[in-house]
Design a protein around this nucleic acid. Sequence first.
DNA 1: CACCAGGCAAGTA
DNA 2: TACTTGCATGGT
Length: 222
Amino acid sequence: MADLQKIYKILHDHFGPQHWWPADSVFEVIVGAVLTQNTNWQNVSRALDNLKEDNLLSLPLLHALPREVLAEKIKPSGYYNLKARRLKNLLDLLICEADPNYSEDKILADFFNEDTISLRQKLLTVKGIGPETADSILLYAGEKPIFVIDTYTWRVLLRHGLVGEETDYTEMQELFMTNLPHDSRLFNEYHALLVRLGKEFCKKNNPLCDACPLHKIEPLYV
DNA sequence: CACCAGGCAAGTA
DNA sequence: TACTTGCATGGT
């Protein structure tokens, strides 16, 4: 079994650390997690810049901002009406349990001060937050040891014969989480490396090529 | 012009 | 349950 540790080493040796998630604050990670749904990061970055220009990138301010105004600000990220609603739903969750006198940092620290499973289920109740967005928030904002699966991850695993077409999100997540130590820094770097590999070598209509660092790893038996 | 990008929920049969 | 469709901007 070509173990996942070995694949990690290959990727890390090849690409080096990826420094994810690019953001200036925990709150920015959370907002970015919603904005990046089915959208490239460059467009998300523009949307975040719009919010920063107006000094709106804070939990209380965004929560108070009318949805229509928020939608205009995040336009470059695409699906802006939808994402404005989804963000609002998420902000409601973060605010509703919090003491209004607390700072953003305190509110978020309190929010993440709970076990990962409960938090994940809570996030998944929010309309517009699915498994990937929830896990991204848990891992990259909350530093919880949970593995994020995205289309790049799926495509990389599929192309290299590590999983079958029918493998779903949960199965792939379990594959990583039962075969690796539950370390948030490892999961952070590993997922970022898989995305990096996907962008460079596993784009949607690109064939496998010899230059891919995983070109000849052994099949993985689950 | 077509196709793609760090998904998700709602609709249909 | 298992597909399909809507959402939308900006880069290649």
